[in-house]
Amino acid sequence: AISWAAPAAYGGSQESPVVELNVGGEFYTTTLGTLRKIPGSKLAEMFSSSAKACTDAEGRFFIDHPGTYFGPILEYLRSGQLPRQHIPEVYREAQYYEIEPLVKLLEDMPQIFGEQVARKQFLLRVPGYSENLQLMVRLARAEAVAARYSEVLVCVVHNEKDDANCVDTLRLLEADKRSVVKFGPWKAAPTIDHLLDCVKMDIKAQGYQVQCSKHLGLPANYFYTFCFTWW
Rank of each mutant, 00 (worst) to 15 (best):
L170C: 14
A144C: 09
A142T: 04
R84C: 15
Q85T: 12
H158L: 03
C54S: 08
H194T: 03
P72I: 00
E115Y: 13
T229R: 06
L153Y: 03
W230I: 15
S130T: 13
K161R: 03
F113I: 13
I73A: 02
G71E: 09
L43Y: 10
A1I: 15
L35Y: 10
G12M: 05
T191D: 13
W186Q: 07
A8Q: 15
Y208K: 06
E89P: 02
S48Q: 07
V210F: 08
A118F: 11
I112H: 11
L105E: 15
D197C: 09
Y129L: 11
E26K: 00
S41K: 01
E98S: 04
F62G: 03
D193R: 05
M109K: 07
L218E: 02
D197F: 09
R148T: 05
A1V: 12
D56N: 09
A142G: 10
I192N: 09
G24I: 02
G184L: 05
K214E: 15
P190K: 06
E93L: 00
R119K: 11
F61C: 09
E131F: 04
C212N: 11
W231A: 12
W231T: 05
D163S: 12
A118N: 06
Y129G: 13
E20T: 08
Y149V: 08
L195I: 10
P83A: 01
L218I: 13
C227E: 03
F223S: 15
E26C: 06
L102I: 07
V154P: 12
E93A: 02
D64V: 08
Y208I: 14
N221Q: 07
G80F: 03
Y129A: 05
F226E: 00
A51Q: 11
W230Y: 10
K214R: 14
F228A: 05
E115R: 15
P72N: 00
Q116G: 02
E75W: 00
T68C: 03
Y91L: 00
A1P: 14
C166R: 05
F113Y: 12
R171V: 05
